Amino acid sequence: MGEHRDDLPLVLLIHGFPEYWWAWRNQIQTIADAGYEVAAIDQRGIAGSDKTPNSSDALTLAQDISAIARSLGASRIVVVGHGRGGQLAWAAPALAPGMVEGVLTFSAPHARAIQRPGTHLTLRTWRHVLTTFVPPLARRGLTDPVSLEHLLAEWSAPGNDGASSQAQIYAAAMRLPEAAGISLDQLRWSYTAVQRPTGRRYFELTKNAIEVPVWSVRGQLDPLLPERAWRQDHTFTTGNFRQITVANSGHFIPEEVPEESSQIILEFLHHVAHQA
């Protein structure tokens, strides 16, 4: 492992649905070897994390990012998020101004872009949205390894088992008390955020453009989020913005193309360090 440098920010890795910190297993050591302290967290309510009454709204979950960093003794962070974790990463600079030095997202257009009306999502995405509103069926799909393997494979590039090969592990995490239900609650909150007081508050707090560097990475073969889903992302930043498309990858980029994802993270961290 490389020697930790005190002048570098903490790197926080935020997983997406339907996973937990294990989704970053291929990147943790690489980041640490580059001299960074790195923490891959479980979002509130997921896997072994605390199950609290307010585990579903993105405002609370985004606030958790800076709270976790402070609990680890950090005053400067770079946030790297995948999927729903990436949408929380977009919000982190607004909720912790002066603390977040960079935002890198995988498979995560800005939440405001996802909420707008239009055909920016695929029919497969909308089909999954409807499934989450049938909790018994959706919970079974997350806790049964065979069903979960099918979902992970369906959202990946054809023939890529980087994520689906871990279905047994992810299903076991979903079988922990309340984990599957909370995970689905978080998704339903996202889909109905504009109708919720906490959602309106969340969008109000995150309406200003982000001044720190933001890089957004999409899988060219992502079956949930077509290229048009990212068209508005540049309007949410005033700092350095870069859109990266990764070939031969679906939705689970860090697991489907782990080495390329690690290199993108290191390149981004290098960029942030030279922006400071």
Rank of each mutant, 00 (worst) to 15 (best):
M1P: 11
M1W: 12
G2K: 12
E3P: 06
H4E: 14
R5C: 12
P9Y: 05
L10N: 04
V11I: 12
E19C: 14
Y20Q: 06
W21N: 04
W21F: 10
A23V: 07
W24C: 00
N26Q: 11
Q27T: 12
T30M: 13
D33I: 11
A34C: 02
G35M: 03
G35Q: 04
V38E: 00
A39F: 11
A40Y: 01
A40G: 06
D42Q: 10
D42E: 10
Q43N: 11
G45K: 02
G45H: 01
G48A: 13
G48N: 13
N54L: 14
S56H: 13
S56Q: 13
D57W: 00
D64H: 02
S71W: 11
L72Q: 05
I77C: 01
H82N: 05
H82T: 00
H82A: 01
R84E: 07
G85Y: 05
G85M: 07
G86I: 00
W90H: 02
A94S: 06
A94F: 01
L95N: 02
E101F: 04
V103G: 00
T105I: 03
S107Y: 00
A108G: 04
H110I: 06
H110K: 02
I114K: 03
P117N: 13
P117H: 12
P117W: 09
G118R: 07
W126H: 14
T131G: 13
V134Q: 15
A138N: 04
R140L: 10
L142C: 06
S147G: 13
L152S: 03
W155H: 05
W155Y: 06
S156C: 07
S164N: 03
P177I: 09
G181R: 08
D185S: 15
D185I: 09
W189C: 00
S190C: 15
Y191H: 15
R200F: 14
N208V: 15
A209L: 06
I210Q: 00
V212F: 03
W215L: 05
S216G: 10
R218E: 01
Q220E: 14
Q220H: 13
W230D: 03
Q232D: 15
D233I: 06
H234F: 13
F236C: 04
I244L: 11
N248P: 09
S249D: 12
H251C: 08
P254W: 02
P254F: 06
V257L: 09
V257F: 02
P258G: 07
E259G: 11
Q263C: 13
L266Y: 08
E267I: 09
H270E: 15
V272I: 14
H274N: 13
Q275T: 15
